[in-house]
């Protein structure tokens, strides 16, 4: 099994320390203690609602970053 690994070297893996960044958008939206509150309001939205919507761009940015940083050299 392990001889195969030497064939293409480091390219035959998806391991990268950058992958740990993906934990940010996984953990952040699950911490209700952070955002289960009413204020500060934004445009009439309680914090609970706009904060969770704001996590979406955080998730997108992190995923794009990890994608760019772990691209196979080409």
């Amino acid at each position: 099994m392990s001889q195969e690994d030497t064939k293409a070297g480091a390219e035959q893996s998806d391991r990268s320390p950058w992958n740990w960044l993906l934990l940010i958008p996984i953990v952040l939206p699950l911490l209700t203690l952070l955002y289960n509150r009413r204020s500060p309001e934004l445009l009439g939205f309680p914090f609970f609602y706009w904060c969770q919507l704001a996590f979406i761009p955080v998730g997108v940015a992190t995923t794009v970053l990890v994608y760019q940083l772990t691209k196979r050299g080409r």
Partner: peptide, 10 residues
Amino acid sequence: VPYTIVVYPI
């Protein structure tokens, strides 16, 4: 909303 945020990085 959190459901469909965390799913993609997972």
